[in-house]
Nucleic acid binder design. Structure first.
Ligand SMILES: [Mn+2]
Ligand SMILES: [Mn+2]
Ligand SMILES: [Mn+2]
Ligand SMILES: [Mn+2]
Lengths: 221, 221
DNA sequence: GTAATATGTTAGACTGATCTAACAAAATTA
DNA sequence: TAATTTTGTTAGATCAGTCTAACATATTAC
C-alpha cells in the first residue's frame, strides 16, 4: 500500500517532470519543502516499490507504474476541485487546499460519483486537464496553449487555463472579472516592463503586468 | 495539533463513554482493534493534551475539551454521511467508510457548506443526532427512543434510528423496504426466540429476528 | 480467602517520516 | 585546471504509532 505521504511525493514529482521528463532531488526538496536527505531516502523507497527510477547522482524519473499512479491522484484532485466549484459553490481560489486533502480518500465509488454528477468533465476549474480512469491525460490541445505574455499587439486569444495558480493570482483575476473562456485582445505592450493593456468582455482597457501575463494560458484565435 | 490517529481514538472513546460516561482500556482496545499497550500509551498522550482523564487502573473518561473535540469530529462524520446520501445519491449502507475518512478533513468552510446545502440537518441517515457547531448534541428526543425488541404485541411505533449499524443490517433493512419513518405494528412475538412478526407500509407480515429488533430504535405512538 | 483469570502497565523493539551534521560528487567560476 | 559552490548521499537522532513479552494489579471463581 501507498501512504498519503508517498502520494504527495509522487504527485510533486509528476508535476516537476511533466515538462522535461525528469527532476532533481533538489527541485523536489524545494517543491515539497522537505530536506534533501529525507527526499533522497523516500526516492529509494519509491524505487523499491517500482514507482521511481533511482540511480545515485542521476535525475529522478517516474516509472510507468509511478506515472499512472500519480495521474490517478491528480485525477482525484482535479475532479474534487471541479466538484467543489460546480456543485458546492466554492470559488476557484478556495478549492486547492481542500482538494489537497480529499485527493487521498480511498474510495473509487466516491470519485466515480463525482465524475458522474459533473458529467465527466475534461478540465478542472483552472483549465488543467483531468486524467482519465487509466491515468491517461489528454494533452493534445493543452500543450498547444501559449502564454499571454508571448502574444503580440493586436492578437486576439481565448483565456483557457491558469498555470501554477496561487490564491493571490486567482483573487486578482476575480477582481478584474477575468475568467476562463474570456476573449482577450492585446491592445498594447509597454516596452519597458512588458506589461500589457488588454480588453475583454466589459473591460475596455485593463493593464496586466508581465508576471500576470506569464501565468495565463491562451488559445490563439 | 491533533493527528488523524488521535482523532480516531477520541471518537471511539466518545462512542464508548456515551452511556456510562467511562470506558476501559480493554474495551477501547477491542473497539479500535489495537493492542492494549498501544492504547494505554495513547491515553497518556491524550491526557497530556488535556483531552482525557487518565489515572492508572481507573476507567477512562473524556475531559470537557475532549468531549467537545470528539463531538466535532462526529459532527463532520454525520454531516458527511448525510451529504453523501442526500446530495450524491449513495445508499445509507455505503456511506460510513467514506465518512470515516472525510471526517478528518481540516476545512471548516467545507463542512459549513455541506451543512448549508443540506439545510442544517439534525440527524444523519441512520437517525443519529448531528452535534452542533459547539459540539453540543441534542439528546432530548434521542434518549427517549426504545428498542423495537422491548415492545409488546399490539404496539405501534415509528422507526427512528439504527444503533451501531453494520452494512449487513442496513442491506437487510433495504431488502425488507424498512426505512426511517416507517410505522411498525407488532403483530406477534414468538416466545421461543423472541422473533417478531410485524407489519408496516406495504408489508403485511414480516418476520424479524430478535437480533435485528435489538438494533432498531423506535418512538412509541 | 486463595487460586485462577482478566485487565492494565512497563520495557523494549520496529517502521515511517522527518531532521542535522558530515562527507562526496558534480557543476560552476575563476 | 584548480578552487569554490551547489547538489547529492550517508550516518545517526528523534517522534509517532504500532507490536510482543514480561510483569503488576484487579476481578472472578472456587
Ligand atoms: Mn489544485
Ligand atoms: Mn495532498
Ligand atoms: Mn457512520
Ligand atoms: Mn476516521
Amino acid at each position: 500500500m501507498i501512504s498519503q505521504t508517498e502520494e504527495n511525493y509522487l504527485k510533486a514529482l509528476w508535476n516537476l517532470t511533466s515538462s522535461k521528463g525528469e527532476a532533481s532531488v533538489n527541485e523536489l526538496s524545494k517543491q515539497l519543502d522537505i530536506k534533501m536527505p529525507t527526499v533522497n531516502s523516500m526516492m529509494k523507497r519509491l524505487a523499491e516499490k517500482g514507482l521511481v527510477h533511482y540511480e545515485s547522482y542521476k535525475p529522478l524519473k517516474l516509472t510507468d507504474k509511478g506515472k499512472r499512479l500519480a495521474a490517478l491522484i491528480i485525477r482525484k484532485h482535479r475532479l474534487t476541485e471541479m466538484y467543489l466549484v460546480e456543485k458546492m459553490g466554492f470559488g476557484w481560489e478556495e478549492v486547492h487546499d481542500i482538494a489537497e486533502q480529499i485527493e487521498h480518500i480511498q474510495s473509487p465509488a466516491f470519485f466515480e460519483k463525482m465524475d458522474e454528477l459533473l458529467g465527466f468533465p475534461k478540465v478542472d476549474p483552472h483549465g488543467s486537464p483531468i486524467p482519465d480512469r487509466n491515468g491517461k491525460v489528454e494533452t493534445e490541445q493543452y500543450i498547444r496553449y501559449i502564454k499571454l505574455s508571448d502574444c503580440k499587439e493586436g492578437d486576439t486569444v481565448t483565456f483557457m487555463a491558469v498555470s501554477h495558480s496561487s490564491d493571490e493570482l486567482l483573487k486578482f483575476l476575480n477582481s478584474r472579472d477575468l475568467s476562463l473562456g474570456s476573449k482577450i485582445k492585446v491592445k498594447s505592450i509597454e516596452p519597458f516592463d512588458e506589461s500589457m493593456t488588454v480588453s475583454y468582455a466589459g473591460r475596455k482597457a485593463e493593464m496586466l503586468s508581465n508576471k500576470v501575463c506569464d501565468k495565463l494560458l491562451v488559445r490563439p484565435a
